[in-house]
Design a binder for these strands. Structure first.
Lengths: 253, 253
DNA sequence: CGGAATCCGGATGGATACTG
DNA sequence: CAGTATCCATCCGGATTCCG
């Protein structure tokens, strides 16, 4: 990608639109940073939770590159904290990223479940921000506890705490009474999240268990959205297209 | 991109489909190599003409990477020459590349015409393979001579020689009688090719001139297709979508 | 001529430590 | 919390060479 102070040796020297898009998008990590921004993260540390293996110096560099390319704006938010937001040009990268995901869902399905690619922190972080927090029972607090097998012992437990207006992800017992226990393996939860298997199917095989009061169990299917890039995503009844810009807007709003 | 003999440090360690697609596509030059393959080049040297600033060793490396990723197949063609062909998975990257091009056409339009990105060899090579060779007058040989301004003196002249069944691009006068002279600047021809201006508009401004017998001039609009990634491409009358996989198939077939 | 491999210097990315 | 600074490994660009 062309940086502010770089020589001319880095561009591809082609008028072709694909070449110009490639100058920006075909840099290591860049599409993933854009994915995080599209998913609604805008603080440096939140962005980094979505790309945990990227060094902070490189993330800072990429955010500068994206500003220079007119894709990201850096501005001060509440209490003077820096925030990174997509520009209109940046938001219109959604279809590009979407097609990349759709292609991989079709042709690289097996690689998604390879052990080095499974990551409970990342999965839970992804679930937390995609959870439909207006779809839980009543107006009260609602706590869901995940117990994962197939992971290191310090990564087995996660709590989602639904409060009116927001959802918190905890790595330690927050001490609240738990309304729903979700017991499964990291692999199965990832498969469900990606839309490769249905909740019903894995429950029938006892690969996923839900324990709690009847209505708290029933609520799970309401608030547990699939990945935005799952083959059919979670779309209004009757629609079966994959993730679209509309779907994004619906969730972001 | 994961290479056959590489360590595990290079992947992103994410189950996300976008991350897996990124492992392949976010490597320097890779989307351009795929573009060339999608446009129908399959010999090493033909591919290299589409990415002239890429070193041959890196092109060879990328072709190996793409084979390993299941996107490219290497096989022997006529007279034992090696050919590189997209697999079904590779052909389905068309929508990804298409969205990248469409995004750049909307947001990076000005950069396409910056001097370092203009390249007459590349433009003419692109035109040659996109020319509609069944749309020229009669069954006879037809020769179009381009005279470009705004380029080094050794890049001013190109000849397209239409013979039954194929079209040759010449960098030196092939000696045939010329049926049509096209006189314009590199910048204007690039703009027309990208669909940023119409042939009519630039002819009205005398920025492009066609000289020849009436029917040979008229033929120009038939055989001179726009870039497959021009905003409206050259599509059958009545359709105005941008480049689609259908359009690709139509031209390739 | 097509299709590479090899070598080298410079650019980029990863790991870790550090700072306001 | 939000990044820099530094050092080293790897990658890339360019030139050259090689082989059928």
């Amino acid at each position: 990608m062309l940086r502010s102070g770089m020589s001319e040796t880095r561009g591809y020297g082609q008028f072709c639109p694909i070449a110009l898009a490639t100058e920006i998008l075909a840099e290591r990590w860049t599409p993933l940073v854009i994915r995080e921004l599209l998913m609604g993260s805008f603080r440096f540390n939140d962005l980094q939770r979505g790309v945990p293996r990227m060094s902070s110096s490189l993330l800072a560099q990429r955010l500068r590159d994206l500003q220079f390319a007119g894709i990201v704006e850096r501005r001060r938010g509440e209490r003077g904290v820096w925030e990174y937001h997509l520009t209109p040009a940046g938001r219109e990268l959604f279809p590009v990223v979407e097609k990349m995901g759709a292609w991989a869902q079709r042709w690289l399905r097996h690689k998604m479940l390879e052990t080095p690619n499974l990551d409970p922190d990342l999965l839970m972080w992804d679930i937390r921000r995609t959870v439909l927090d207006d779809a839980r029972p009543g107006g009260r607090r609602y706590v869901a506890a995940f117990h994962l097998s197939g992971v290191p012992s310090n990564r087995q437990r996660y709590w989602l705490v639904f409060e009116p207006g927001h959802v918190d992800l905890c790595y330690k017992d927050p001490g609240f009474e738990v309304d729903l226990f979700i017991t499964t393996s990291l692999r199965v939860l990832t498969q469900v999240w990606l839309g490769h298997v249905s909740v019903d199917a894995v429950m029938r095989e006892d690969a996923l268990r839900l324990d709690g009061a009847r209505r708290d169990v029933a609520a799970f299917r309401k608030w547990f959205a699939l990945s935005l890039f799952a083959p059919a995503g979670r779309l209004p009844a009757g629609r079966m297209e994959p993730a679209s810009e509309d779907a994004l807007a619906r969730r972001a709003g």
